[in-house]
Simulated assay, not measured.
Amino acid sequence: MRALRIFLIVAVILGGLFVIADRVAVGFAEDEAADRIRTSEGLSSTPDVSIEGFPFLTQALSGELDDVRIGIKDYEASTSGNDTTTAIRIEDLDAQMHGVVFSGSYSSATADSATGTASISYAELLKAAKSETTDVTAGVTAQVVGLSDGGNGKIKVTVEATVLGTKLPQPISVLSSVSVAGDTVKVHADTLPNLGVDLAEDAVRSVTDFEQKIDQLPGGIQLDKVEAAPNGVDISVKGSDIRLVG
């Protein structure tokens, strides 16, 4: 019995030491990976990297990690839309990487697949709209002055207009649908605003409808789905063969 107790005590101590060593190793690996990703993606701040699964050391020895979560705040993505190229700030980009194969020095890392979420504020998305005064037709100008949550997955697009030199007393709002086509977020008015004069539909839509192309997301992940939310649009992203480093 005494020998059994000694064996159990030794096993508990060794197990505890292994857990400590494992957690120290994973912490070092997370910090190293975060620095490599920051440099590779040209980020202004170090991302949050979390290597999931236990134990880490056995995964590290195999050269493949089951799951790695990467969180990036205020990511500046290159964009294009409405004949302009700008940058748009993506808030809280959170990606879950699956099947991450890496080199021993962490100089290269590739994920078999990835899923994640991100958000873009309405203020940022407004940059893609016709936020400057636009000639709709002779004597009629309009501009988008605000985007907000319209409820039920819709975006409320608010437009100010001037007709024959007279500014309409109140801005006009329409509900719009938001969708993703490839790497582009599209906003399409469900109905057209009534500006008090007969106008061709395509003329009005030149103001109310707009799209925003979002390029060069980290590692080559792609837009998947988008929906309106209280503070902006929530985006789902996905990808395969994602190159994280190298």
Rank of each mutant, 00 (worst) to 15 (best):
T79N: 04
H98Q: 15
M97C: 13
D94C: 02
P47G: 04
M97D: 00
T84A: 15
V68Q: 04
T110Q: 09
R23D: 10
I88E: 01
I37R: 03
E32D: 14
A21S: 12
Q59R: 05
A29C: 05
L17A: 13
G53K: 06
D66K: 11
E76K: 12
Q59N: 05
F56K: 05
Q59V: 10
T58M: 09
A25S: 10
R89W: 03
R23Q: 10
E41Y: 08
D48M: 10
D35N: 13
D31P: 03
T58L: 11
T79Q: 05
T58E: 07
I90L: 12
F56L: 01
I51Y: 06
D112I: 04
L61R: 11
R36C: 05
S62R: 12
S45R: 12
S40W: 02
T58Q: 08
A109L: 04
I72F: 02
S107P: 05
S45Y: 06
L61Q: 09
D67V: 14
A34F: 06
S105V: 06
T115Q: 12
P55K: 06
G42F: 15
A25Q: 06
S62W: 03
G99D: 03
S80H: 02
T117A: 07
A33M: 15
Q59K: 08
D94R: 07
A109T: 03
Q96D: 15
V26Q: 00
P55R: 05
D35H: 13
G42V: 13
G27Y: 03
D74C: 07
L65R: 01
S40H: 09
S40G: 05
I88G: 00
I90W: 04
D112P: 04
P47Y: 01
Y106T: 09
T79W: 03
